[in-house]
Design a protein around this nucleic acid. Sequence first.
DNA 1: ATAATAGGCAACCAAATAGTTGCATGTCAA
DNA 2: TTGACATGCAACTATTTGGTTGCCTATTAT
Lengths: 104, 104
Amino acid sequence: MDEVFRALADGSRRSLLDRLHARNGQTLNELCEGLDMTRQAVTKHLAILEQASLVTTFKHGREKLHYLNPVPIHQIGERWIKKFERGKLAALSDLKRQLEKRDE
Amino acid sequence: MDEVFRALADGSRRSLLDRLHARNGQTLNELCEGLDMTRQAVTKHLAILEQASLVTTFKHGREKLHYLNPVPIHQIGERWIKKFERGKLAALSDLKRQLEKRDE
DNA sequence: ATAATAGGCAACCAAATAGTTGCATGTCAA
DNA sequence: TTGACATGCAACTATTTGGTTGCCTATTAT
């Protein structure tokens, strides 16, 4: 879980995930296109995404194909976001109360 | 959005959010209790959470009260996680297909 | 008034991060 | 078979990050 959060912390990596979400199974070079970064930098980002199991790769000849693994993102939604969704209204009313108290 | 992801990347910060989720409106010293970190380190983490609008603070005398702001977490769920939720099944079947192809 | 308490500020440090360049390897096509 | 293409590996660098220590300020309680 920690690795997933760390992987998602970087905007370049999130946009790589976006690209794969738009078109799954791209090669490294395809993923590099239009990015203001060297291929090696992209490789490193993809390695971090792979370590976090957000991306899975397959070798096809001399090409490396990158596929999105949707499971970890789903888990963050289920195990983390939803937990804070419960108690959201209570937290909001706590905040509101304090904001009003401030103006007394 | 970027600041929120960055803030969530650190485990100590996520556990501070957990603590506030368990009991809202804690002081700095309360949030420090039991943590293997100096008060100043905690202060820095809280500052990052505050910058990302995940936490809002109010001064009450010499104490500083910390309140959870549930909105950014909710937004990540809505704007980010849900986006990948759509297409999740397609991505999973892409993955499965490639895994099977590997064993040919 | 003064001591204790709650927190703030700034300088410093080590390790991690995001990026680079240069070169090597493996695969495909002419 | 040889050149072009796709990717891998390693060393190096600058910046960011997570943490520390030391001291200062503001508020409360005795």
